[in-house]
Every structure is written in C-alpha cells, then in structure tokens.
Simulated scan of single mutants.
Amino acid sequence: MSRIDETKEFIPVRIAVLTVSDTRSMDEDRSGQTLVDRIEKAGHVVADRQIIRDERDQIADQLRAWVADEQIDVVISTGGTGLTGRDVTVEAHRDVYEKEIEAFATIFTIISMEKIGTSAVQSRATGGVAGGTYLFALPGSPGACKDAWDGILEKQFDYRHRPCNFVEIMPRLDEHLRRK
C-alpha cells in the first residue's frame, strides 16, 4: 500500500502553473491559486505562473517553452479540458507529449466520481511527458485542482512516496534524447 518512507529526504520539484482562460485575470484565478497554494505547502517551488487564452497554438507554445526550460520539472495547467468548442487544452498538451500517462486520467476520473458522480465523464484531464518534463492538464475548477493535487500529484511528486513516485524516475525521462 501507498506510504511515505521517512528515511528518505524530501526533494522539491519546480512546477509551472498555467491557467487557460479567455476571461480570468491573475486576481480572479482561483484554480491557479489553489494549485500554487498546494504546491508551496507541499514544499515545492512555483517556477512560473501564466494565464493564456483558449488558443491551441498559444497553449502548446507555452508548454514547449517550459519543457525547454531546465528550471522547470513539471507543468500543471488548469482550464480548457471540457467538451465545448473553446476547450482545446487537451489537444495542445497532446501536441507536445512524447508519451501520455493514460492512468492519470483514469485515476482522476475515479476520484472525481466520488465527488461529482457521473458528471466526471465531462472532464478530459490528461497527463504526459515531453523532454524530461511532466505535463498535466486539469479542469478549470478549484475543486478539480484540489482533487488532482490531493489525490494524485502530491503523492507522486513526493520522492519519499512508496512503492514508487514520479520524482525517482525524473533523471531517466529524457534518456532517449541523450547520446549513447
């Protein structure tokens, strides 16, 4: 079963937060702030924070810029994961992914079902990896951000979490890009 190994030292990761919205400003960004608060409380570093309109190319460009930035280990976006015509965050993420983490969406849906029932079917939360950077797209509600962080990401970004976690494999995420 899942547990924290207290004999290991905590390793903070550097996380960028992207809010995808046509209408929110930084002062009104409750979902992004929810993530920032949880990231910092867990002992990690908020490496950058941006708000971008629901434009697929702009979202993908920002994701690529953060993937190329050696000071960023993880990108978490919030917003634009629904089913409407303006919801293009998932497509932008998939434009950037080298590998998708399919189980992230499954586990997120299970957690959401416990809170919002079958309405969870409307979320297209996703996760993946590109250039040695983890990328996650969460729905644009503070509740969904809490559910994803508290139920999945907080544990997976804690190096002490057992039996395994995302941090321990970070050095090998981009091994296919290095010379042999």
Rank of each mutant, 00 (worst) to 15 (best):
2 S>Q: 15
3 R>H: 13
3 R>I: 12
6 E>V: 07
8 K>E: 13
8 K>I: 11
8 K>F: 15
9 E>A: 15
10 F>H: 11
10 F>L: 10
10 F>V: 11
12 P>E: 09
13 V>P: 03
15 I>M: 05
16 A>I: 07
17 V>W: 00
17 V>K: 04
20 V>R: 07
20 V>M: 08
20 V>I: 11
21 S>Q: 05
23 T>M: 08
23 T>G: 03
24 R>T: 03
26 M>V: 14
28 E>T: 12
32 G>I: 01
33 Q>E: 07
35 L>H: 06
36 V>A: 08
38 R>Q: 11
40 E>H: 09
41 K>F: 08
43 G>P: 04
44 H>W: 09
45 V>R: 01
48 D>C: 10
48 D>S: 12
57 D>K: 10
59 I>A: 05
63 L>Q: 08
63 L>K: 00
65 A>P: 03
65 A>L: 07
67 V>E: 03
67 V>R: 00
67 V>N: 01
67 V>F: 04
68 A>G: 07
68 A>T: 04
68 A>E: 08
70 E>N: 14
71 Q>G: 12
71 Q>L: 14
72 I>S: 06
72 I>T: 10
73 D>V: 01
73 D>P: 03
73 D>A: 04
74 V>A: 05
78 T>L: 06
81 T>A: 01
82 G>W: 04
83 L>M: 09
84 T>G: 10
84 T>M: 09
84 T>C: 11
87 D>W: 10
87 D>V: 09
89 T>H: 05
89 T>V: 02
90 V>G: 02
90 V>T: 07
91 E>I: 11
92 A>L: 01
94 R>D: 09
95 D>R: 10
95 D>S: 09
97 Y>P: 01
97 Y>N: 05
97 Y>I: 10
98 E>C: 08
99 K>A: 11
100 E>A: 02
100 E>P: 00
101 I>Q: 03
102 E>T: 14
103 A>V: 14
103 A>C: 13
104 F>W: 06
108 F>W: 04
108 F>C: 00
111 I>L: 13
111 I>P: 03
111 I>C: 12
112 S>V: 05
112 S>E: 00
112 S>G: 08
114 E>Y: 12
115 K>F: 09
117 G>S: 10
119 S>D: 15
120 A>E: 07
122 Q>K: 15
122 Q>S: 15
122 Q>C: 14
125 A>L: 06
127 G>H: 03
130 A>C: 14
131 G>S: 11
134 Y>M: 08
136 F>T: 05
137 A>H: 05
138 L>N: 04
138 L>V: 10
139 P>F: 09
141 S>V: 06
143 G>V: 07
143 G>N: 09
143 G>L: 08
145 C>K: 03
146 K>R: 15
148 A>N: 01
149 W>V: 02
150 D>V: 13
150 D>Q: 14
150 D>T: 11
151 G>A: 02
152 I>K: 04
153 L>A: 00
153 L>G: 05
154 E>D: 12
156 Q>N: 12
156 Q>L: 11
158 D>A: 09
158 D>H: 01
159 Y>I: 11
160 R>C: 06
160 R>K: 05
161 H>P: 09
162 R>L: 12
164 C>N: 13
164 C>S: 13
164 C>D: 13
165 N>K: 01
167 V>P: 04
167 V>I: 09
167 V>C: 05
169 I>C: 15
173 L>Q: 09
173 L>A: 05
178 R>I: 10
180 K>T: 12
